[in-house]
């Protein structure tokens, strides 16, 4: 099986789906001739032409509004926002139009489209090239939100997102684009949206996480294992809708929960997960639910190592939770 980086896997998903379905078009800044600033669309302009791989004017509200209009007329656009940090000019269209189209038209019109955006930190990009703002979208009824952590999932989830009848915000941890490689099957497969994945089975502590933090969590779990603490790492993969069953099943087994995300703490996904577990598995809990998250400051440029959760922070928190 070919070994691909995350960004190559994304590229494969796009090119394979585009070959199968002519209604798929791509829109974004620098995605055509240049192949995308992260090269996610490398070669697609050459293969599919400028009608299907559209280098747009520099306006995110334009990209999203135009893509949405195209989707109303039957195309399946995949829009790229160069960095998630630059999506806000389109926020009105996403929250007030994209998310509500199906609902407010009684299901008569829907927007079948995907918005891809590199997200998160770890590349020394400062506050405008590092934000983890998934909460805004998770908080908005009508949007699905996905974030892969591996090459396999990146391809499979993106294929599922492109085929999904609801609008999907597909967030790509940019730090993983080239740093993570993995086996990716050739051809058609989809990873079902709304399903978490248990990456390591464990008995003592459940570690719920997603995106780039999955790799921090796995490393911490390994170190905890060396100290005799058995950690179950659960990669949520789809952030909306959340996989309640996977979380509850894991908590029933371990009774202890640590949640890791690099998004800021206040109203980060950890807050919601914690509430869900309290509601659905309270009697199984043996320790307070703990969170390791980014801080409630803008993302810092030169102190990004301080800002981000790291293996030490996760490990200490796991130990504390395990010994409670």
């Amino acid at each position: 099986m070919p070994v691909l980086t995350v960004v190559q896997a994304i590229n494969k998903a796009l090119s394979e789906e585009m070959s199968k379905d002519e209604s798929i078009v791509l829109l974004g800044e620098d995605i055509g001739v240049n192949g995308g600033v992260f090269r996610a669309t490398e070669g697609l302009y050459q293969t599919f032409g400028s009608n299907r791989v559209i280098d747009t004017p520099l306006t995110e509200s334009g990209i999203i509004g135009i893509a949405m209009g195209m989707s109303l007329y039957g195309l399946k656009p995949v829009a790229e926002i160069q960095f998630l940090d630059f999506i806000y000019p389109a926020f009105d269209l996403i929250v007030n139009e994209l998310a509500k189209f199906r609902y407010r038209t009684g299901g008569h019109y829907t927007a079948h489209m995907v918005i891809r955006a590199p997200c998160g930190g770890g590349i020394k990009g400062g506050m405008y090239h590092s934000q983890s703002s998934e909460t805004y979208f998770i908080h908005t009824a009508g949007l699905k939100v996905v974030m892969p952590s591996s090459s396999y999932d990146a391809k499979g989830l993106l294929i599922a997102a492109i085929r999904d009848d609801d609008p999907v915000i597909f967030l790509e941890p940019k730090r993983l684009y080239r740093s993570i490689k993995g086996e990716v099957p050739e051809g058609d497969y989809a990873v079902q949206l709304g399903r978490a994945s248990v990456l390591t089975e464990g008995e003592d502590v459940s570690l719920f996480t997603y995106g780039a933090m999955v790799h921090v969590a796995l490393e911490a779990a390994k170190k905890a294992g060396e100290k005799g603490i058995s950690v179950e790492v659960v990669d949520l993969r789809t952030l909306s809708p959340l996989d309640f069953d996977a979380m509850v099943t894991s908590v029933k087994k371990t009774g202890r929960v640590v949640i890791v995300h690099e998004a800021p703490r206040t109203l980060g996904l950890g807050a919601e997960i914690s509430a869900i577990i309290s509601e659905k598995a309270f009697l199984h809990l043996e320790a307070p639910i703990a969170r390791v998250t980014g801080y409630d400051t803008p993302y810092h440029y030169s102190l990004e190592e301080v800002y981000l959760p790291n293996v030490e922070k996760v490990l200490k928190t796991v130990e504390k939770t395990a010994s409670f």
Binding site: D85, F86, Y88, P89, K124, G125, G126, M127, Y128, H129, P298, H300, Y301, S302, L303
Partner: peptide
């Protein structure tokens, strides 16, 4: 030290610090 690249400005010189968006 909070800003990434080219985000210069100076209140005493009436230059409002630029931002990336």
């Amino acid at each position: 030290g909070r800003n990434f690249a080219n985000a210069w400005g100076d209140r005493s010189l009436n230059i409002v610090n630029s931002s990336a968006p």
